[in-house]
């Protein structure tokens, strides 16, 4: 069974432990700037919203990549090959979620890779705002609706 990150913004307290754990897991010590999960803070609304790649089916990043550097791993994550990425950044403008980003230190792009099937952000979250659940129950409904709006084409059923 494929698993996905499930984010429940209502349960997020804005502790940023997911962000620190993510950057550490990916070899950037504890540097929030290098984390591929972000927490957005909305002062007016008093809300925190964790935000990362949904591993969407459309995979704009993968389709736009000119060097075949993005592939799908056994966990269904779209992963970037550091060896093949040339750092052209086309994927960063193609992804309508803005969840694949350029990392100037490595000259490559970085994105959520689900940590090989054991996401560090999930382990670090003290309030279960981020969980790792079976894909058919994860329901990234809001992002999927967004994905549908941005899809390149509509396929007709006939």
């Amino acid at each position: 069974m494929q698993k996905s990150l499930h984010i429940s913004a209502d349960d997020c307290t804005g502790c940023y432990q997911c962000v620190l754990a993510c950057s550490d897991e990916h070899g950037y010590d504890f540097n929030p700037m290098k984390s591929v999960i972000q927490v957005f803070k909305f002062e007016d609304e008093g809300r925190y919203v964790p935000y990362t790649c949904t591993q969407c089916d459309e995979a704009w990043c993968q389709k736009a990549c000119p060097t075949d550097a993005i592939s799908v791993d056994a966990n269904g994550a779209k992963v970037v090959s550091e060896a093949l990425c040339v750092g052209c950044k086309v994927c960063t403008i193609a992804c309508p979620f803005g969840t694949i980003n350029y990392n100037a230190d490595s000259g490559k792009v970085i994105k959520c890779d689900l940590c090989g099937g054991d996401p560090a952000c999930v382990k670090a979250c003290p309030t279960s705002a981020i969980t790792f659940v079976n894909s058919d129950t994860a329901q990234f409904d809001k992002m999927r609706a967004w994905a549908g709006k941005t899809d390149a084409g509509t396929q007709q059923s006939n």
Binding site: T92, G98, T99, N101
Partner: peptide, 16 residues
């Protein structure tokens, strides 16, 4: 800036 710039595409193309 490079952070989250894909969102610009998303906002434009979804006519949000």
């Amino acid at each position: 800036r490079t952070d989250n710039i894909g969102i610009l595409r998303g906002l434009i193309q979804s006519r949000t």
